[in-house]
Amino acid sequence: MRIQDIIEGKKQWRAHVARVKALPPDYRIVYKEMQRYLFKIGPVDLPDGSLFSGIVDFFEEGVAAGKGVLELIGDDVAAFCDELVEDSRTYADIYQESVSGRKAR
């Protein structure tokens, strides 16, 4: 990774964080908890951030429609997260593949 990419990535991430901060409190709470969970299970398409910025897009629409966050995604936030990353390979999948030397699924 070039230094340039790191700086660019940081800038984008900072802009993203600013958008999260601008969300109403209930959305912000749920977003942060989701992000924490997703960092742990680590679906592979995380690094480019499109998953996270997509969530914020979606949340902003919900805010504009005057909805509460759980009204938007349902009470089971974990189930929503799992659905989000359902067909993404996780870090664990990749690791397990590298051990067994073949695709895990």
């Binding site: 709470i29 749920v30 908890e33 989701m34 924490r36 969970y37 742990k40 299970i41 680590g42 759980l70 009470d75 089971d76 936030v77 974990a78 997260c81 799992d82 996780t90 870090y91 664990a92 999948d93 690791y95 397990q96």
Partner: peptide
Amino acid sequence: LAGGAGSRSYRDRWREQLNDNV
């Protein structure tokens, strides 16, 4: 994290934690 032994039950715990925290 590495998908080793017991990772499934861990994931369940993270799941619960997430919903509890929210």
